[in-house]
Structures are given as C-alpha cells and as structure tokens.
Design a protein around this nucleic acid. Structure first.
Lengths: 160, 160
DNA sequence: TTTTCCTCGTTATAGTGTAACATGGCGGCT
DNA sequence: AGCCGCCATGTTACACTATAACGAGGAAAA
C-alpha cells in the first residue's frame, strides 16, 4: 500500500519521524528505549535494506558498545517483539518497521538483486489462507509474507 | 484450501501418491530422482512436520549415505528447486510439498507448539500486496506466506 | 575411446543464534 | 540509609545452520 523504499524520499525526515513515533510508543507502554536499542533502530533506519545481526554488531562494537552477539540480538529482539522492526526470514536479516505506530501484519517486497526491502501493509489472514485456516480450525497469531523479485531500480539498471 | 496435516488421514497412501507424482514429474522433465534424493523426500513425507537439514543428515548417515552437511543440503536443494519440497524459513526446516504436480505459491500454517505444518494453496500476489507491488513497479517472482499459530490438536490438548 | 556432465562424497570453514553467568543501575520498601 | 528485586548490559562459551572447494566415479554424448 505504501511501499517506501524504492522511491527517492526525504530520508532524514523519514528517520526522525520514525524514531519519534517509537519514542512515543515506548513512553506510552513503559518500555525503555535505551541507548543501545535506539542506536540499533537508527542503524536499521539508515538504509531501506535489511541488516544482518552481525553487521549491526560490528557497528555497535565500533561505537564502543558490547562486541558479543547477544548484545545485538537482544536489541533486535526488543525491537521485533514490540513491532518496531521486522525480521526478514528469507535473508536472516532485520529491517525497521515503516509504520511502527500501528498493529499490523507485515508483507515485504524483497529485491533479489540489491536486497532492498519495502514493507506493505497486509490484511492478515484474508483470502485462501484465512479460509483454509478457519476450515482446519487453526488459530493464526501472526502472518508474514515475503515476496521476492526485482525492484524497479534494478529492472531499469540491467536486463535479466 | 486443503490443509492436510492436522487431520487423520491415510498416510501410507498419502506418501506413496506423492512419491509417484514426483517420479512422473522427474521422468517428464528429465530429472534424476536418485536414491539419496528419494530417501530424503520419503523422510519428509514420513511426518507432516518440518525437518531440519541436520535431522535429515543424521538419518542419511544411519542408512550408510554420506555423513557431511552438503549431502543433505544438496538433496534438499534439489527438492526445493523443483518444487517437491518447501523450506519453512521461520523454522530453518524443510517439508514435502503436498501438491508437487502443480506450479504454485505456497502458504503455510505452522503450529508453534508441535511444529506441525500444513500447506495451503495461495493465489500469488493478490490483494494489497499485489497492488502495492504493481504501484511500486516491483516484479514479483515468488511469494511465501508463513502463518504461525496453534493447530487444532494443540488447542484441544492444552489451554494457553 | 575420450570428453562432458552430473551426482556423491569428503574436509574445512563461514555465518547465525543461544545458554548461562556476572555486573551495575534504578526504583521501591523497611 | 540499607536492602531487594528487576532489568539491561556485558562476558565466555557453545550450538545450530549453511556453503566453498576439491576429488572420485558413472553414464551419456561426441
């Protein structure tokens, strides 16, 4: 619905707006957006691309934070758990949520050439899947959709 | 649409039918369903549950096949590449396709308690996601949907 | 027969993720 | 003030997942 990520846009505003929204949500929910967590979120927001946990970790280390995997994973877990970031399972990588204010099921468009990722709002459990789940008596709690393909920029860039 | 996996059913027939379909497809396409590949497919068919590559590997080893990871991964790659199996990204595990005869986009219902998995046919790229992709100029090649929740059996078994 | 392609097997290593334990800050309680 | 419980950070060590690179053998094409 609003696939940011393949278009030029005011990225500084995009980042700051996102951080502000997350701050609000944290205040409202009594969550601590600590320095490490905040930095990780900022890193994710710096590019509309999924970052691996160890890529995050390298940057944390360079900034004088902890240098061991759990440091990165814990911050990422926090962000994912509260809906401020998403894990792209297909890439084993993480990306900032583009609408952290809302409760939503996520769907992603993943470019297999440049690895950029766009998030679209998806209605959860509609269509065949929802019907199949209902028939089977399966209780859906969370749905993730990942579409792989080629983004407009890479289509222009090269054939194939 | 046809969520096998949570119901009792004639599992022996289910397996043999599947194997037969895969054999046909291989013959038609000039693919080699070698002993290793065939055994791996059979292992996946033995349970309606996703198996990890190393779980597969252990069984191959026990049967006298190669005991190193590439042996399992290559067989799994073959099966996935030709649509005879799917990878469940959320579990880093693999499952036999329940309708190997057809070209399809897959959607899965994954029980977070017992890890059983049911496959449903999903219309690819419909709804919001397809619209978002079209608007953005993104070319979708493959879509995977993974829904997590609780299967009917585990709902009955325990509350929570 | 020789070449080519594919499959299987190996060794070694890279990449991803967690368990378990110690420290230190901060708020509430006595 | 001093104690306590909670939570976040940090550590070491390890488990799990996946791939690169090389070699042997077999079957089909040249």
């Amino acid at each position: 619905m609003d696939p940011i990520g393949f278009d030029e846009h005011d990225h500084a505003a995009c980042r700051h707006g996102n951080i502000a929204q997350v701050e609000d949500r944290c205040r409202a929910a009594g969550l601590q957006l600590t320095p490490v967590r905040r930095r990780v979120l900022e890193m994710l927001l710096e590019e509309h691309r999924a970052l691996g946990a160890y890529e995050i970790l390298d940057r944390l280390r360079a900034e004088g934070h902890g240098s061991q995997p759990p440091v990165a994973y814990r911050a990422l877990d926090f962000l994912v758990k509260h809906g401020f970031a998403h894990k792209i399972e297909h890439l084993n990588a993480f990306i900032a949520c583009t609408h952290p204010g809302t409760d939503h099921s996520a769907a992603f468009l993943i470019c297999r050439v440049c690895a950029s990722v766009a998030e679209a709002l998806a209605e959860p459990a509609k269509g065949n899947l929802g019907r199949a789940a209902e028939e089977a008596g399966f209780l859906i709690e969370r749905t993730v959709t990942e579409a792989q393909g080629i983004c407009p920029n890479c289509q222009k860039a090269g054939a194939e």
